[in-house]
Amino acid sequence: MEEGVLFLLSKGIESIGNIVIVTFVRPSFSKDGFLYDLVAGRGVSSLRLKSLTEPFPGRVEGLPPVDFLLIPFPFLGPSGQLDLEVCIWSSTELGADCS
């Protein structure tokens, strides 16, 4: 992973569940993209989103048009907690994946 790279993991609440978004805030000199894998688990069930980060230089105003993972309320734990795994890797690492 490069130095000076910042990823934001955001969670919002909608009427049917939580949305989770990964945003890549890139330095002006960086041209690389990153792949990510989000997995929300509950017991033996899981929800998964595999996508490419959208690069945004500097501050992001409002919600950018990106992929997101929608996690329905019944999928949350008894206390409303969210069990989430996040894996991020460079898109230049062809064939790389989270295991």
Score class of each variant (00 low, 15 high):
3 E>I: 09
4 G>A: 03
4 G>V: 03
5 V>S: 07
5 V>P: 02
6 L>E: 11
8 L>A: 08
8 L>Q: 13
9 L>C: 09
9 L>I: 12
13 I>Q: 12
13 I>R: 14
15 S>T: 14
16 I>S: 13
16 I>N: 14
17 G>E: 02
17 G>R: 05
19 I>Q: 06
19 I>G: 01
20 V>Q: 02
20 V>A: 01
20 V>M: 06
20 V>F: 10
21 I>N: 06
22 V>H: 00
22 V>C: 01
24 F>C: 00
26 R>M: 03
26 R>D: 09
26 R>I: 05
26 R>Q: 05
26 R>W: 05
27 P>F: 10
27 P>V: 15
27 P>Y: 12
28 S>A: 15
28 S>N: 10
29 F>L: 13
29 F>M: 08
30 S>Q: 08
30 S>P: 03
32 D>I: 14
32 D>L: 07
32 D>N: 08
32 D>S: 12
35 L>T: 06
36 Y>V: 03
36 Y>N: 01
38 L>E: 00
38 L>Q: 00
38 L>W: 01
39 V>E: 08
39 V>N: 04
40 A>L: 02
40 A>I: 02
41 G>S: 15
42 R>D: 10
42 R>E: 03
43 G>Y: 04
44 V>I: 14
44 V>W: 12
46 S>E: 11
46 S>T: 11
47 L>S: 04
47 L>R: 08
47 L>W: 03
47 L>N: 06
49 L>E: 01
50 K>N: 15
50 K>V: 15
51 S>Y: 08
52 L>M: 11
53 T>S: 06
54 E>C: 13
54 E>D: 14
55 P>N: 07
56 F>H: 15
57 P>F: 10
57 P>H: 12
57 P>V: 08
57 P>K: 15
58 G>C: 04
58 G>W: 02
59 R>D: 13
59 R>V: 14
60 V>E: 05
60 V>W: 03
61 E>L: 09
61 E>C: 12
62 G>H: 02
63 L>N: 11
64 P>L: 12
66 V>L: 06
67 D>M: 05
67 D>K: 11
69 L>M: 10
71 I>L: 12
72 P>W: 04
72 P>H: 02
73 F>I: 09
74 P>Y: 06
74 P>Q: 07
74 P>H: 09
74 P>W: 07
76 L>H: 05
78 P>I: 10
78 P>N: 11
78 P>G: 12
79 S>L: 09
80 G>E: 08
81 Q>A: 05
81 Q>V: 08
82 L>Q: 09
83 D>S: 13
83 D>K: 11
84 L>I: 09
84 L>D: 01
85 E>Q: 10
86 V>F: 01
87 C>D: 01
88 I>R: 00
88 I>W: 02
89 W>T: 03
89 W>I: 08
89 W>N: 00
90 S>L: 08
92 T>C: 09
92 T>M: 06
93 E>R: 14
93 E>G: 05
95 G>S: 05
96 A>K: 15
96 A>S: 15
97 D>Q: 13
97 D>T: 15
97 D>R: 14
98 C>P: 04
99 S>P: 07
